[in-house]
Amino acid sequence: MEELERAANLKRILESPSYRVAYQDLDFLTDPKLRPTRMELELLKPELAFERLNITATIVVFGGTRIVERAHAESQFRQAEAKLQLDPQNATLQRQVAVARRLLAKSRYYDVAREFAYIVSRACTTEGRCNYVICTGGGPGIMEAANRGAYDAGAKSIGLNIRLPMEQQPNPYITPELCFQFRYFALRKFHFLLRAKALVVFPGGFGTLDELTDALTLRQTRRMQPIPIIIFGKEYWERVLDFQYLADEGVIDDEDLNLFEFAETAQEAWDSICRFHEAASQPAGHPANHLDNGNGDHLTGH
C-alpha cells in the first residue's frame, strides 16, 4: 500500500463512526436497539442529582398548562371577544369566547397553586434545606404557578420536563440544577411518585387525568407508598370523573373513594397533608412528625 493510500485510509478509519467511543457516539446511542440503555440513563440522571442534593421527599403538583395567571387569561379573553365582534355569527369564534371565559374563571387556581407551594416551602425550609420539595412537570400553567410559589419562598423546586411535538419549554421558576428533560413518559412518572409524600392535583386535561388515575391505581393496588392525594376543584373533577358512579357500578370498592380528598384552598390542602402524615406516624410509636422524609420503595418492587 502506497504511503498516500495508507494516509487516506487511516483518515477514513479515524473518521469512521465505528471508531467513536461508544458513550460519545450519538448515532449509536439514538439507535432504536439502545432504548433500554436510554431508559436506564433517564432513570439514573435525576436519581444521582437528587442523591447529591439530598432530596428524599417531594410534594408533587399536577395541573393544566392552559390555566394561566389572571392577567394573561383576561388578555386571551379580550382577544377572543375582539375577533367575535368582527364576525358575531361565527360559531367557532363564539365557542372560543366561551372557552376563554371558562379558562379565565379557572385562573384562580394559578393563584391557589402558587400560594400552596409557597406555604409548603416556607413551612418545610429550615437552615436553607427544604424537606418537602415542590415537584412539577416543569411546564407552564399550574406547573409554573407551583414552581413560582417555591421560588417566592426562596426554596428549591423540581421540574420534570418532557419532550413534546409542541416543544414544551421549562418555566423560569425551577431551580436550574433540578430541571430535567425526559423523552419517556414512563420514567418521568416514576420520578414523580418515587419520593412523593403527597400528590396535589388541579384541573387539567389528558395529561393531568393520566397522572391522577395512574397514582390512584398504584395506591389502590398498594404498589406505592401511602400518600394523600388532594384534588382541587370538586365541581370540575366530578364532571370529568364520576368517582361515585364507579363505586356504584361495582368497578371500584367504596373504600377506594378514600384514596383522595377534595380541597379548595391552599391552607386546607396543606393541613390535610400534615394530618395524613401525623396519623401515619402514630402506630409506629414515634412522635407526630409531618416532615418525615423516609423514602418509600414500593415503586421499585422491593
Rank of each mutant, 00 (worst) to 15 (best):
F202P: 07
R52S: 14
E2L: 15
A113P: 12
T65L: 04
A80P: 03
L187D: 07
R78D: 10
D214Y: 02
L299F: 01
G149Q: 11
G159H: 00
F185P: 03
L216K: 08
I227A: 11
K33G: 07
R183S: 07
I158K: 02
Q169M: 06
E115N: 14
D254Y: 06
A123F: 01
H191E: 13
F232G: 03
Y245K: 12
G138K: 01
H277N: 08
G294T: 08
R148M: 09
P172W: 03
T92R: 13
L86T: 07
P170L: 01
K106C: 08
L43A: 06
I231Y: 05
F116M: 14
A247S: 12
R102L: 14
I59P: 02
V68L: 12
I119T: 09
Y173F: 15
P283A: 09
E144W: 00
G204K: 10
C135P: 02
V133P: 03
I227D: 09
A196I: 02
A98H: 06
L10W: 11
Q76Y: 06
V251W: 09
I231S: 09
T58W: 01
T30A: 11
N293S: 15
L194I: 10
A73E: 08
P172V: 14
K189Q: 07
F62D: 02
A8K: 14
T217R: 03
K156A: 05
E51D: 10
T65Q: 08
C135F: 00
E167Q: 12
A100M: 06
Y245R: 11
L199R: 05
A186I: 13
L218R: 07
M143H: 01
A100R: 04
N54M: 10
S157Y: 00
G138Q: 00
P140R: 08
